[in-house]
Design a protein around this nucleic acid. Structure first.
Length: 295
DNA sequence: TAACCGTGGGT
DNA sequence: TACCCAAGGTT
C-alpha cells in the first residue's frame, strides 16, 4: 500500500525546533540514559507539567539504576506519588533490577534489549535509543501520529495506532543523518504537543503550514472510526484503586482492614479493588494489614 | 485484541 | 457538567 509521496517535513520542522523547543530538563546534554529512561516512563500518558517535579526528585534520589534497584519497590511507588498508573513505578523498579542483573547496571542501547525490559514498549524503547544514545530509529508517539495524519495524510486525526504502520510512516520522513534524525524525532513530537495539537491547532505559526495536506484540503473534519470512549472515572474501580493506593502511600505502617473499609462505601467494589491491587503486586496483605510491596 | 490501568488539566 | 485528552504498556 504505497502512501502518497511524503512532503519533506524534517528540515522545516527541525529549524523550527531549534528555536521553539521547550527547555525540558531531560533533554539537556549531560543527562544520563537512565534519567532519560525515567522521564519516558513518567511521560507515558502523563503530561509534562505534572512529570517535571517528580522527575527532578527521582533523579536526585536515584541517580543510577543500581541505586533504585537496591531499594524496596515500596519506595518507588511512594516517590511516584500521584503521577497515576502506579504500576509504572513498579515496572520502573523492576526494569532497574533487570538492568543491574542483565546489563551490569548500564541502560542498554539497543531497541531489542530495551524492549525486553519490564514496562518498556515500542515507544519507550525507541525513545531511549534515539534520545539517550543517538541511535537512528523512528520514534512515534501520539503527537507524531497526529502530525503525520495531518501533514502527510490530510486527516484531522490519526487512524487507530498500528506500530508497524506508524513506524513505516515515520521512517519515510526520517533524515539520513543520525543527528538530524534524532532532532526530527523530538521535533515532530514537540510540534504535535505545542502547535499541531488535538484541539485548536495553531496552524498560523506552524512551520509546515505551506505543505500540510490537511490544511491544503481545507482542514476537513475527521470522518474515520471514533476512538473508544474512555470509561467514566468517577465511581470506577480505577478511582477506588487510586484511593486505596493513596492510603497505602501515606501510611508508613500496615493499614488495618477496618481503616481500608472506611475509604469507600461499596464493600464489594472495594474488595475487588484490593484483590486487583494485590494481584498486580501493588499491595500485599500481612497479618497486621495491608502495605506497599517491600520486594 | 479489546479492555484495563490513575490523575489532572483544558474546554 | 461532562467529556476529551495526555511522550503507552500489558494481558
Amino acid at each position: 500500500m504505497p502512501r502518497p509521496a511524503a512532503p519533506d517535513l524534517a528540515p522545516a520542522v527541525n529549524e523550527w525546533f531549534a528555536d521553539a523547543a521547550r527547555p525540558l530538563p531531560w533533554r539537556a546534554a549531560e543527562v544520563s540514559p537512565w534519567a532519560v529512561l525515567v522521564s519516558e516512563f513518567m511521560l507515558q500518558q502523563t503530561q509534562v507539567d505534572r512529570v517535571l517535579p517528580r522527575w527532578e526528585a527521582w533523579i536526585r534520589r536515584w541517580p543510577t539504576p543500581a541505586s533504585l534497584a537496591a531499594e524496596p519497590a515500596a519506595e518507588a511507588v511512594r516517590a511516584w506519588d500521584r503521577l497515576g498508573y502506579p504500576r509504572r513505578a513498579l515496572w520502573l523498579h523492576r526494569a532497574a533490577v533487570e538492568i543491574v542483573e542483565r546489563h551490569g547496571g548500564e541502560v542498554p542501547r539497543g531497541v531489542d534489549e530495551l524492549l525486553a525490559l519490564q514496562g518498556v514498549g515500542p515507544y519507550t524503547a525507541r525513545a531511549v535509543a534515539a534520545f539517550a544514545f543517538g541511535v537512528r530509529v523512528p520514534v512515534v508517539d501520539t503527537n507524531t501520529r497526529r502530525v503525520i495524519a495531518r501533514a502527510v495524510d490530510g486527516n484531522a486525526e490519526p487512524a487507530p495506532p498500528s506500530t508497524a504502520r506508524d513506524l513505516a510512516a515515520m521512517s519515510a520522513l526520517l533524515p539520513e543523518s543520525p543527528h538530524e534524525a534524532r532532532a526530527f524525532n523530538a521535533a515532530a513530537m514537540e510540534l504535535g504537543a505545542t502547535v499541531c495539537t488535538a484541539r485548536a491547532p495553531q496552524c498560523g505559526v506552524c512551520p509546515v503550514s505551506d505543505r500540510c495536506a490537511w490544511l491544503r484540503a481545507g482542514s476537513p473534519a475527521y470522518d474515520g472510526p471514533r476512538k473508544p470512549k474512555q470509561a467514566r472515572f468517577a465511581g470506577s474501580d480505577r478511582q477506588v484503586r487510586g484511593l486505596v493506593m493513596r492510603e497505602l502511600r501515606a501510611a508508613h505502617r500496615p493499614v488495618t482492614r477496618a481503616e481500608i473499609m472506611g475509604i469507600w462505601a461499596d464493600a464489594v467494589q472495594l474488595e475487588r479493588a484490593i484483590s486487583g491491587l494485590i494481584a498486580d503486586g501493588l499491595a500485599v496483605e500481612t497479618g497486621e494489614g495491608m502495605t506497599l510491596p517491600e520486594a
